[in-house]
Simulated assay, not measured.
Amino acid sequence: MYTLYDVLTRDFRNGTDKIIWLLVVIFLPLLGTILWFLVGRSSSFK
């Protein structure tokens, strides 16, 4: 749940990036969360 909140509250360079990350986290919960914290957080703006 925290990962979804984190993705939703971050500002992204591109609007489609947020949608893609949301889909990854929803459909691949464990892998999506790991990928978000390793790759996604550094690629978003905030």
Rank of each mutant, 00 (worst) to 15 (best):
T16P: 05
L30P: 00
V7K: 03
Y5R: 14
L38M: 07
L30Q: 07
D11V: 07
V25F: 02
K46A: 07
F45M: 10
N14H: 12
P29M: 00
L30R: 11
L4F: 08
L31V: 15
I20S: 05
V25L: 08
F37W: 15
D17S: 09
R13P: 01
V25D: 03
Y2W: 08
K18Y: 02
F37H: 11
G32T: 02
K46L: 08
V7M: 03
T9E: 11
P29F: 02
R41D: 06
L23V: 09
L23P: 02
K18F: 03
Y2A: 13
R41E: 14
L22K: 04
F45H: 11
G32P: 02
K46I: 06
L38P: 00
T3H: 01
P29S: 02
G15A: 09
D11A: 08
S43C: 05
I26S: 08
L30V: 15
L35C: 09
L28N: 09
D6N: 15
L28S: 09
G32Q: 03
F12S: 01
Y2V: 13
I20N: 07
T9R: 14
Y2M: 12
I34P: 00
T16S: 13
F12A: 01
R10Y: 10
D6S: 11
I20T: 09
I34K: 09
D17Y: 01
L30T: 13
L30E: 08
V24G: 01
V24L: 15
T9S: 12
V24W: 10
K18I: 06
K46M: 06
R13D: 07
L23G: 06
T3R: 02
L31K: 10
D17G: 01
S43G: 07
P29A: 01
V24T: 07
F45E: 12
L8D: 12
F27E: 09
L22A: 03
F37L: 05
T16R: 11
D6E: 14
V25S: 05
W36D: 00
T9H: 11
L8H: 08
T33I: 02
F45W: 06
I20V: 13
T16K: 08
F27S: 05
W21T: 04
L35W: 06
T9M: 10
G40R: 00
V25Y: 01
F45N: 12
G15M: 06
S43H: 08
S44P: 02
T16E: 13
N14F: 11
L8E: 12
L30Y: 14
T3I: 09
T9V: 04
R10I: 02
T16Y: 12
M1H: 08
W21F: 09
S42Y: 10
L23I: 10
G40W: 01
T16F: 12
G40F: 00
S43P: 00
K46R: 14
Y2P: 03
Y5G: 03
V39M: 04
D6R: 08
N14A: 07
G32I: 03
L30W: 13
R13W: 10
L38A: 05
L35A: 10
Y2T: 14
T3C: 06
D17P: 01
